[in-house]
Deep mutational scan, measured.
Amino acid sequence: MQNSHSGVNQLGGVFVNGRPLPDSTRQKIVELAHSGARPCDISRILQVSNGCVSKILGRYYETGSIRPRAIGGSKPRVATPEVVSKIAQYKRECPSIFAWEIRDRLLSEGVCTNDNIPSVSSINRVLRNLASEKQQMGADGMYDKLRMLNGQTGSWGTRPGWYPGTSVPGQPTQDGCQQQEGGGENTNSISSNGEDSDEAQMRLQLKRKLQRNRTSFTQEQIEALEKEFERTHYPDVFARERLAAKIDLPEARIQVWFSNRRAKWRREEKLRNQRRQASNTPSHIPISSSFSTSVYQPIPQPTTPVSSFTSGSMLGRTDTALTNTYSALPPMPSFTMANNLPMQPPVPSQTSSYSCMLPTSPSVNGRSYDTYTPPHMQTHMNSQPMGTSGTTSTGLISPGVSVPVQVPGSEPDMSQYWPRLQ
């Protein structure tokens, strides 16, 4: 039975679970980093996980050691009161100082060594604690504590007292930064006198190289990059290397530039699409467009005044059976039934097929058609009795279509119309 579990990581490298990497692998990681390889490249070359490479390099940059820390136990506290007071002093002298600059000053002034120097995250935590204590304490208590930490007896009751030896409130920041720059020169002199001055200088240079600022491109470089971006948004590694040799930039910087440029292009394309949609959409909808001609068919113009009344309900007709019959029939052209047409008796099958359309009241044959006459024609229609054979009435077949029909004066039988409509 094995005491430890061995495995293979996602890159194909072998590791022992819970145990640190061998010293030979750690040394190779540092050597590759000094030669300029990126952590992701080191991870692929040595088949070590990216997190492990970053952790080893980060500890090497901070402490200069590649040895693993002790497994188990607690780390001794490195942010001692003396170190905290120095950090507060540096922050007062130059409020814009960075944590890694404070760390360098602690090393250069001999406050800490490589073994007990606090990390950048520890210094940031100390600065946050100082800021929170400043908010919790009152103004007087804060000034007393700062005077105690600074070891001075001057008056701290006013704002300019934060910067000793100065009279203009805006000047101390520059003086403090100048003092810090002077301390940086002392850093070089002190570290050069040490035993491991060369190694420390190499480590600091490598650290500065990794902690780079934003790349500033010249106009020629920007023009070359934009020209390549117009050709393709995704250049391959050969195109990037050719462009890197042409404009004297690292291939990694060119790759990052193209990634950022593609993101910018997507944002601009989104804005262009929004403007295009806004320009195509009308600002207001016309009133006429809300009524579609496919839904509402136009009603033909009436030929006679009587045809303006298109349904039985508008003429005072309360018989719903006839109203439904007229509205359900398709529109037909106007025609006239003459008196000489043969009077065919209704076929029983045809009569039964339209039995649902006729009223059940037996008085329908005896009703006159003056009910369908509009009010303004009552006088004219009353002067001509319906009993004469020459009287013409208008029957409504569908809305908007008038059918003048000659009705025999002897017997106005409704059943004569249905064979004609089939």
Rank of each mutant, 00 (worst) to 15 (best):
S4H: 13
S4W: 11
S6M: 06
S6D: 13
N9M: 01
Q10I: 09
Q10W: 03
L11W: 09
V14I: 09
V14Y: 08
F15G: 01
V16H: 07
N17Q: 00
R19Q: 06
R19P: 01
R19F: 03
R19Y: 06
P22C: 07
P22E: 04
P22T: 04
D23K: 07
K28C: 09
K28N: 08
I29T: 00
V30G: 03
E31T: 13
L32I: 06
A33R: 07
H34G: 15
H34M: 07
S35W: 12
G36L: 04
R38E: 00
C40I: 12
S43L: 01
R44N: 06
I45G: 15
Q47V: 02
V48C: 14
S49C: 02
N50G: 14
G51E: 01
G51M: 00
S54L: 15
K55V: 03
K55N: 04
I56G: 00
L57T: 00
G58L: 15
R59I: 08
R59V: 12
Y61V: 06
E62W: 03
G64K: 13
S65M: 09
I66A: 06
R67N: 13
R69L: 10
G72L: 00
G73R: 00
A79Y: 03
T80M: 05
P81A: 10
P81T: 14
E82N: 08
S85R: 10
K86W: 12
R92H: 13
S96N: 14
I97T: 09
I97E: 06
F98Y: 11
F98T: 09
E101M: 05
E101A: 14
R103G: 15
L106K: 03
L107N: 08
S108W: 08
E109I: 11
G110Y: 15
G110S: 14
V111S: 12
C112N: 07
C112G: 09
D115R: 09
N116G: 12
P118E: 01
P118K: 01
V120G: 10
V120L: 05
S122Y: 02
V126T: 15
R128I: 04
N129H: 15
L130I: 13
E133F: 13
Q135Y: 14
Q135W: 14
Q136L: 10
A139C: 13
A139H: 09
D140Q: 09
D140E: 14
Y143A: 11
Y143H: 11
L146K: 10
L146F: 13
R147Y: 14
M148C: 10
L149I: 11
N150Y: 09
